[in-house]
Design a binder for these strands. Structure first.
Lengths: 184, 184
DNA sequence: AAAAAATGTCCCAGATTTGGGACATTTTTT
DNA sequence: AAAAAATGTCCCAAATCTGGGACATTTTTT
């Protein structure tokens, strides 16, 4: 029993992440569905994109929040939230990309932006604690670290796509690269 | 004295890097030129894209080769090539992206691919030396490190676009994140 | 096995993107 | 200041992308 709508959304996230303006035909292809079917599930490109974004935001929000509450220890939290980020995969990087486009006007008024901000509020708060404590290289800005986080997730994803690296192994490597990369 | 063709290519690299299928209108906008002018310089989208790729490959190729020859010491080399990568900026990341797209069939027969391979041959060779010596965390694969390299360049670029971080400072941070991230 | 639901095929009209002609305007060169 | 070169404006036809109707085929449910 497969959920076509979900299949299409997943395909769209994958395609749009690589090519924002890709024709819908490509999304349909990736989802192994006809474009006609895609149009039955989504009124138009805007609606599909919005569903993608909603999905992405929800997934990341939940994952991050859960990870945050797994521990009281800031460093453990960081690690768990990092792994949560890995598990969100391209949803994570896509979300970040959408809010980082050079012509994207970030505004708290916008519901999407504020939800995005909220998702990383806990993460940033936790990071501040570690920075204040000097656990992290203090020359680093929160922004830098956030971007590095996203980047390492991207590295992880591409290693998984290639399939040359065992998932567990790749997770370890990712945490190593990230934690050392910020001076832990 | 400005070179319109070059201006357009630069604009295209910036735009296509974010949105591969973006309409040419956007490129023209970014270059502050009419779409009509753009079409005078480039027969069609394909030609523009090819010129972009040529430009990108040449720039990266030259920068990497020069950096390689600045030193005999593998570690210094790595660092110099890293900085060269930073200086190539989005050209570097775009090049990498084009050869990493999930539907990109990499083939040595293709001239573009082989030129790409060649550009990073020196880099990879040098890296192997460091790996063999144990200077780098040996659990890392060359591929992982290559991706991490590209990722950190991306982090650097976005910090520069935001403009919150001084360039020299950002370069230092980038090297820190990369070198520590691979276990140096 | 019949009914219902989902998907595919074929087709079409509207919207958008693309490439370029004709000519006016601006900028650069001589 | 005249000539040449570059760019802009306006316009148009071809190509591509988009959304959906009509109906056949396949898959799932009852």
């Amino acid at each position: 029993m497969k959920d076509t709508e979900q299949t299409i959304i997943d395909a769209a996230i994958l395609i749009f992440n690589e090519d924002l303006s890709a024709p819908l035909e490509k999304v349909a292809e990736q989802a192994q569905v006809t474009r006609r079917t895609l149009h039955r599930y989504f009124k138009d490109r805007r609606e599909l994109m919005q569903k993608c974004q909603k999905e992405i935001r929800k997934t990341c929000e939940v994952a991050m929040t859960n990870a945050y509450h797994t521990s009281e220890n800031p460093l453990e939290r960081l690690q768990n939230m990092f792994y949560a980020g890995l598990d969100c995969g391209s949803k994570n990087t896509f979300l970040h990309k959408l809010h980082t486009l050079h012509d994207h006007k970030h505004q708290a008024a916008n519901e999407e932006c504020s939800e995005y901000d909220h998702t990383f509020e806990l993460w940033k708060g936790n990071l501040q604690v570690l920075l204040a404590k000097g656990v992290i290289n203090q020359a680093m800005t929160v922004d830098w670290i956030h971007n590095l986080f996203q980047s390492v997730v991207a590295v992880f994803i591409s290693s998984q796509l290639k399939g040359t690296l065992d998932r567990a192994k790749a997770r370890e490597l990712a945490w190593f690269s990230f934690s050392k990369g910020i001076g832990i």
